[in-house]
Design a protein around this nucleic acid. Structure first.
Length: 270
DNA sequence: CGGCATGTTGCGCA
DNA sequence: TTGCGCAACATGCC
């Protein structure tokens, strides 16, 4: 389930790989592992030391003693730590076995839909370099966001999904943040004013923070309040005003919103 | 069976 | 040239 919060939680789990040495990486799936410039899982990764596991937006980056590995989870990707001898998980597409002192671990990449990618590279890849600021790591520069939104005529919902604007915002986060900000998702981005940008930034921060907290609570078996207030509730009453939540397609993605309380800047007749 | 899904990219068109 | 909408990717689930 990967938007910024889920990828961040995965990154924290994989943090236990820091300092470990790669023993072997095996994949039976040439769609997940993209060969670039003749890279090879065996010769390029065996023996490498994992210095760090980082993230920007929805991308994970393993920093090795020599080179990098980039992992994108697509729509249904996930990493799970197991023991090397454990059976393959359902939909397991790739495994990376590592050793740290006496401890051995096996990181399993699962991905039913196989939209994810595992890329070995000697330097940062273009997709990583093209990412805009990460709202969780870098914070949100509201004056900059206001300027950038002013350049774009597309619906605000579509613009928020642009990874070069804010890295890591996905469909659910955009929906939830706009509901919090009480802004109609169809509104042209350029119509946003300083107050709108402040509300959007606050909504994004809140949704991201709560979703990370929720996902971690689930992993640890703790109870937590679900972070989503409107996503998945089309046809049901809005949690804030009680009006019926609507669903429509914006920028090719299903978009839910409340036509009554997300009325700011709503298009005429919409 | 039809429709929908937390993402990205490439193509055709204006 | 640029921006935009949309199909495609591959598979599961309701």
């Amino acid at each position: 389930m990967p938007e910024l919060p889920e990828v961040e939680v995965v990154r924290r789990e994989l943090g236990s790989l820091r300092g470990a040495t790669v023993v072997r990486v095996v994949s039976n799936d040439d769609r997940i592992f993209v060969r670039q410039d003749g890279t090879d899982l065996g010769t390029d990764l065996a023996g490498r030391v994992i210095r760090d596991v980082g993230r920007r937006g929805k991308w994970l980056r393993f920093t090795l003693d020599k080179g990098f590995v980039f992992s994108h989870l697509g729509m249904t990707g996930d990493w799970t730590l197991r023991a090397p001898g454990d059976d393959p998980l359902a939909f397991e597409r790739l495994r990376m076995d590592v050793r740290r002192r006496r401890a051995i671990m096996s990181a399993r990449y699962t991905d039913p839909r196989r939209f994810g990618r595992f890329i070995v590279a000697s330097e940062d890849i273009d997709a990583w370099r093209a990412l805009g600021p990460d709202p969780w790591l870098d914070g949100i520069d509201e004056p900059r966001l206001l300027v950038e939104l002013g350049k774009r005529k597309r619906p605000i919902k579509a613009v928020l999904l642009d990874q070069s604007l804010l890295a890591g915002v996905g469909n659910i986060i955009a929906i939830e943040a706009l509901w919090r900000a009480r802004i109609d998702p169809r509104t042209p981005a350029a119509a946003m004013n300083g107050r709108d940008v402040r509300a959007i930034a606050r909504g994004l921060r809140l949704v991201i923070e709560r979703t990370i907290r929720y996902d971690e609570a689930m992993i640890e078996g703790r109870r937590a309040r679900p972070p989503f207030r409107i996503y998945g509730r089309a046809g049901a009453p809005c949690a804030r005003c009680g009006d019926t939540v609507r669903q429509m397609v914006i920028a090719g993605r299903g978009t839910v919103f409340c036509p009554r309380c997300q009325g700011r800047h709503a298009p005429a007749g919409g």
